[in-house]
Write a protein that binds this DNA or RNA. Structure first.
Ligand SMILES: [Zn+2]
Ligand SMILES: [Zn+2]
Ligand SMILES: [Zn+2]
Ligand SMILES: [Zn+2]
Lengths: 166, 166
DNA sequence: TCGCCTTTAGTTATATTATAACGACTGAGA
DNA sequence: TCTCAGTCGTTATAATATAACTAAAGGCGA
């Protein structure tokens, strides 16, 4: 959720988020892409949430800082962040989540990673994993039928460890 | 695509589709669920397409036979068909496709199968596979982190064998 | 500094996908 | 017959996403 602490019109984010945003800016710099104010703000709002957030939720929050933000404002920022691999779209939820790996990745440019998502239907939390068995199984299944995979969506819905206890 | 042959207001489907619809009706009978006229028509329209079809595409076609069909008409039928496992929803496309396995399944009631989908970005065709390596890898990855999976979405986008040649 | 070009953003309108809510009808069984 | 659950008709609206056009900003060479 959005932290109400340390939230001003000038600088809405916690030091932790600010650090991530700095890394994102540095990452963009290496790719000659521009993390503009709006894009940075949208990324911050996404990173600041413990759950995936919808485009219109982002828009509502964004309007606290940019009075005239409109749907295209948000969708353009999301398109950019998706293209940079800084966020992911969760298809089953039509919502967006920060990439748990991108800002830690040291593999160099264009390191597109194969992520999978575990969606808890109890608490709504989504965890991102990179499981090579799944990736390999997918690549292998595709190869079997002569299909050349480019990108894959793996979203597993169920109950997280915590919600299984409740 | 919808076949224009053998298409009348009374009986819009080819013998091949009619046979599948009969099996679907028989399947529903075993589950004490009712494949009503509208549901049957919607299923037929989906089965008659070589690609996933959107709800509003279905609605357009449905209106040829039911003048007053409206969005809820289609979505109610889709909800039913999804619940029976007779169709699947392709999340990345917000579209629906007939289940390639349900009508051939002899495993008895509630045989929820673990399907994966290969989506060709060249021709739009979607093939459904049941790959146990993928299913096992997913189950195993979930178990690793104490997550109890209930259902999973696997959608692989890329180029089919045919489109790789073009 | 200037002009030129590309990228980004503002703005309005609209498209696309999906659901809420309520009343009427139907058919099975008490 | 009465009642109940399930289904459907109908209207309205919610939620998600994009088109199209204009304006501003930023990079870059002359
Ligand atoms: Zn990621
Ligand atoms: Zn949970
Ligand atoms: Zn299937
Ligand atoms: Zn193809």
């Amino acid at each position: 959720m959005l932290s109400s602490t340390a939230m001003t019109d000038q600088d809405p984010f916690s030091p932790q988020i600010l650090a991530l945003l700095d890394r994102a800016a540095a990452f963009c710099a290496t790719r000659a892409s521009r993390l503009t104010d709006t894009r940075r703000l949208v990324l911050g709002l996404i990173l600041d949430s413990s759950k995936p957030v919808g485009a219109y939720d982002i828009l509502d929050h964004l309007r606290q800082y940019q009075r005239n933000a409109a749907p295209p404002t948000v969708y353009r920022a999301l398109d950019f962040l998706l293209a940079q691999g800084l966020i992911h779209r969760i298809e089953r939820m039509s919502a967006f989540i920060g990439c748990a790996h991108r800002l830690e990745c040291h593999h160099g440019h264009g390191c597109g990673h194969r992520a999978q998502f575990l969606i808890c239907s109890g608490c709504g939390a989504v965890s991102e994993v990179e499981d090579s068995e799944i990736s390999h199984a997918i690549a292998s299944a595709a190869k079997k039928i002569g299909f050349k995979p480019h990108q894959s969506t793996v979203e597993i819905e169920g109950l997280c460890a915590i919600c299984q206890q409740g």
